[in-house]
Simulated assay, not measured.
Amino acid sequence: MACFNLPQNLSLTEAINFCNRLWEAPPDTKYEFDFRRMGMVEPFTMAYVANEMKRFRKSKEDAQFTALNVQQHTYPAHMGFFKAFGLNHGNAPGQASGSSTYIPLTLLNVADIEQEAARRAVNPGDVIEEKASQIAQLLIRQSEGNLVDTLTFSIREIMRNVVEHSGSDFIEYCGQYWPSRNMVEVAILDVGNGVRYGLRDNPDLKISCDRDALHLALLPGISGKMYRGVRRRPNDAWQNSGFGLYMTSRICRAGGNFFIASNGAGLLLDATGKEDRVTSYQGTALRLRFNTQSLTNYDEMLTRFRREGYQAARQFSGDQAIEPSMASTMLSRDFQSK
């Protein structure tokens, strides 16, 4: 029987290492998971580990799985962690109503977004932005202001990528606000095709591995849908121009950090630089962390990032650089009112 002990501190590093060990283990007919030592958990690591354990179980349909010592873990049970990977314990994802400081594991159906957009004759980006704003307002207990705008923008851009590129049926998300630490964490995951697949149609990109795809995707002006030869639609504010991930990662690095994993590759960015991580994750998983005290002057910050990003894009592509779209650099309400 293969036995796995969940780490005491389910931090980002420990969660990645645990899941990597899971997939490196020799095949067996019985698997035992002991949660006795598991202490601190975070929104992203809960979602990340739950998705990997669910995938692991599905890959071994004939094996027997046992979970030990789960009763004392009331927080992850309430958040939907255990049922997310198939254990009949606690709430199901989306069952808990959440509170003013957290959002439980929640699944958002991509088809529902597209159907609502069609029904209202709007772009799916408008529907996603409304959902992103609800998440932001719930987490930080404010209805407006720089922090709501910043968080809304970042959540929207990640969710847009899932709908436009991933092929995933669902967007999974959760979050936590720690007022004593002035910290917000948002996790957004999918089990789609991954970042490299989303860039596949761009003939100017030579991508040999998923690590390269991650590094390219975070550069300004890099897109699988917008490149030299694609006609720019002047009246389409939502046309993808490859600045969403760049802008979001810059925002996170300004007062926290940004992590992305896709099909075995991982990349952690903060104010000091970037660090590659080897992961087992299939699909795309992102963690956004903000220090709420450092995010001020939203308009000025995004304008500066947009200007610097376009200057960088021109260094890569010269006069062929694609200018950032309005949707990739601000909230829809900002450009609809102009």
Rank of each mutant, 00 (worst) to 15 (best):
Q239T: 07
N291Q: 01
S223G: 10
L288K: 06
N235M: 02
F243G: 10
A271T: 02
A271D: 08
D276T: 10
T248N: 07
Y298N: 05
G221I: 08
D270L: 05
Y310Q: 09
E323V: 11
R314Q: 15
S317H: 14
R289L: 11
P324M: 08
R287K: 11
R306F: 01
L267I: 09
G264E: 05
H215R: 15
P324T: 03
D299N: 08
G256E: 03
F243H: 12
C252K: 05
R211Q: 14
N297R: 13
Y227F: 15
G264K: 03
T272Y: 07
T303M: 06
L295I: 15
N240V: 14
N235K: 09
G318C: 05
F305K: 06
T272L: 04
I222A: 07
T279V: 02
K225L: 15
Y310V: 08
Q315I: 06
R304G: 02
A261F: 00
L269V: 04
L216G: 00
S294T: 10
L288Y: 10
F258Q: 04
G229N: 13
G283Y: 04
R277F: 14
G309C: 05
G283H: 03
G224D: 11
D319F: 09
S317L: 12
F305D: 06
L218A: 01
L288T: 07
G273V: 05
G242K: 09
A271L: 01
Y310R: 05
S249I: 04
A213Q: 09
N240A: 15
Q311K: 13
D236T: 03
P220F: 06
F316D: 02
L302D: 00
E275F: 01
N263R: 04
D319K: 14
I260C: 05
L295N: 06
Y246E: 05
Y298F: 14
D319H: 10
G229Q: 13
R233L: 15
K225Q: 15
Q315E: 13
D319L: 10
I322Y: 02
N297P: 00
R277D: 00
A313C: 13
F305V: 05
G318T: 03
A213V: 07
M301Q: 14
G255R: 08
R250S: 14
S262R: 11
L286R: 03
G273R: 04
A285N: 06
N263Q: 08
E308L: 13
Q311H: 12
S223T: 11
S280I: 02
T248D: 07
A312N: 01
R314T: 10
A261C: 14
L302Q: 02
I251Y: 03
G264S: 08
I251F: 14
F305N: 04
F305H: 09
K225T: 14
F316E: 02
L288E: 09
